[in-house]
């Protein structure tokens, strides 16, 4: 899993049937040590109902589709956790 921040939402009227009731958010990678953005923004399914500005953890590749209880969703990035705090031991920085 990776750390990211939700920075946007999308509107889509025509989707794959397995996306029923699931939102697509825009997220960008977050560097846990410095807290700055890393990489490019991309799209991810939202399994936990996160909002813009929240720090989240997301899964990639094949297991991203397995993060939903009711069905296998066709996705390669899924937001699976909303993160309250990240504690990094000073010694490692």
């Amino acid at each position: 899993m990776f750390l990211a921040k939700v920075i946007g939402v999308t509107w889509s009227n025509h989707k794959h049937y397995s996306y029923e009731g699931i939102e697509v958010k825009i997220i960008q990678d977050l560097n846990p040590e410095s807290g700055e953005f890393a990489g490019k923004p991309f799209f991810a399914m939202d399994a936990v109902g996160s909002a813009i500005g929240e720090t989240v953890a997301y899964e990639i590749s094949f297991q991203a589709g397995q993060a939903f209880e009711h069905a296998t969703v066709l996705t390669d990035a899924t937001i699976t956790a909303i993160i309250d705090s990240v504690n990094i031991d000073k010694e490692y920085i």
Partner: peptide, 21 residues
Amino acid sequence: GSVETNEKGIDAVITAKIEKV
């Protein structure tokens, strides 16, 4: 990861149309 594309050797699939961001 879906019934239609399982074991089909496809690695890029269109799943949604995005109107607005």
